[in-house]
Each structure stands twice: as C-alpha cells, then as structure tokens.
Nucleic acid binder design. Structure first.
Lengths: 123, 123
DNA sequence: CGGGATCCATATCGATACTG
DNA sequence: CAGTATCGATATGGATCCCG
C-alpha cells in the first residue's frame, strides 16, 4: 500500500521534511554545495548575511536529515568540509530551480508588489 | 548587463523573493492551487493544521507578489476564490517537485535522522 | 578554523473575539 | 463565508564570548 501520509496532513513525517526544505537558509546552503565540498567559513562568506549560529544549526539539521555530509580533516587548525550526500544530490535540481526562479522573476514580483501597494494607497 | 544581484547577496530583491517562496505554508498553498481556483475555507480544510490567520497572511503575501489572484463573487454570503496567476503558474513545477520529493524521500530522511541520533546517543 | 553556549530582541504563531 | 484585530506564548535570529 501507499504511505498513510501526504504533505497535506498535519504533523506527518512528510510535512516535517517539507518544513526543513522550505527554509531560505537551507535552500541557499544546498544550492551553494552543488559544485562540490565547501568549508564552513567559505559558505559563511559566500552566503551574505548568514550568521555563524544559523549556518551551524542549518548544516547540523541537513546532516541529520541525510542531505549533507560532514568531513573532518585533522589539519591544524582543523578543516571541515560539507558536501551533498547522494540523497541530497537528488534535490539539487529542485533547489536550484527555486533560486533561479527567484532571480529570473524578481522584477515581475517587484512590479506586482508595487502595483499592489499602489491600489492599496489609492483605495 | 545582468542583474547586479544574485541570491547569495544579502538584502537584495532576489533574496526577498526566495524568502517568500521558501516558506512551508506558501509551498503548500501554491501546491494546492495547481488544480484550479479554490475558496478560502476550502484551502483551510485541505491543508491540515494551518490557522486562519496564517492562511490569510500567506495568501495576502502571495497576492502582493503577483503569484495568486483573488476573485470576489457577490453572493450571500460572499464567495472568494484564490487561483494561480500566470506568473504563479510558472512556479508550479518547482513547487510540486518540492512536495513530491518530501513524500518520496520521507523514509530515507527518517532513517537518516534515526541513524544520526543513534551515533549521537552512542558517542 | 569551526564551532558551542549564552543572552536578548524580535518575529511568528495559535487562540480568541468580532465584523460585513 | 471570509476575513481583521488583538494578546500572549514560543520559536527564531543576531551578537557576543569562549574553546580545542
């Protein structure tokens, strides 16, 4: 039989998974990892505005969810690399589609917002 | 020239757009609207666990962003239908890919979480 | 370098009450 | 039916300090 859950059900595992994916920082991080392993502070620098705490938390969650792997190299100081797991790789198309959509349609959204605000001001 | 912004820049329009899309409720609502116009309380019933306040707020944002249209029919009591705009329709493939991924890979994620928690308990 | 721990401001959400 | 307004709990995020 099929799953007893679907994404429309409350407090089901599927919803929990979606809850993780539908997170701005998670999307940005997964997107950033597409080209290969990246180190902690490298991600931190690339994704402007993310705090170290949030980056750390999000990476930990993605690791727990099996989407991202964490490799420690015993250099001095220590080197830590994050990379997509095979499972995480199956998400990249969707994730990058999302951020690319945002870039492509930014202008249309901005215009819509402006129009919406105009009608509100006038009304 | 291309846009001066990309999704990795802080406080840029692209990031704002992604911030809207990377929202669990927005994803669920857009997903629900794929099959045609739906009324407010219909969405509310279908998406288990969403409060009327959050549904209202999210719909308003999606409308402002030009992704969802709102049609009022002067029946008694009033009927309001929400539907995807043409712009919103360009998102449906990506959005449904996201929720479908969640449903398909739920088990793998759950297993990964379990394994992660095990190693943590043991260590 | 790669974080964990803590403190504090703010944002978010659920519940409730009220309206055209 | 389809909301808005308000209040209180809670979750989230930023800033800071510290450590191996």
């Amino acid at each position: 039989m099929q799953h007893a859950y679907n994404v429309y059900e409350d407090r089901c595992p599927t919803r929990m998974v979606l809850d993780r994916l539908a997170d701005k920082w998670a999307v940005l991080i997964l997107d950033r990892l597409q080209d290969g392993p990246v180190r902690f502070n490298h991600i931190r620098r690339d994704i402007k505005g993310i705090s170290q705490k949030v980056l750390s938390q999000t990476l930990r969650r993605l690791e727990r969810d099996g989407l991202v792997s964490r490799s420690i190299f015993p250099t001095v100081p220590v080197t830590v690399e994050y990379a997509l797991t095979p499972l995480g790789s199956t998400l990249t198309d969707t994730i990058s589609a999302l951020s690319h959509w945002a870039e492509k349609n930014m202008d249309a959204v901005l215009a819509a917002q402006h129009a919406y605000d105009q009608t509100r001001d006038a009304g």
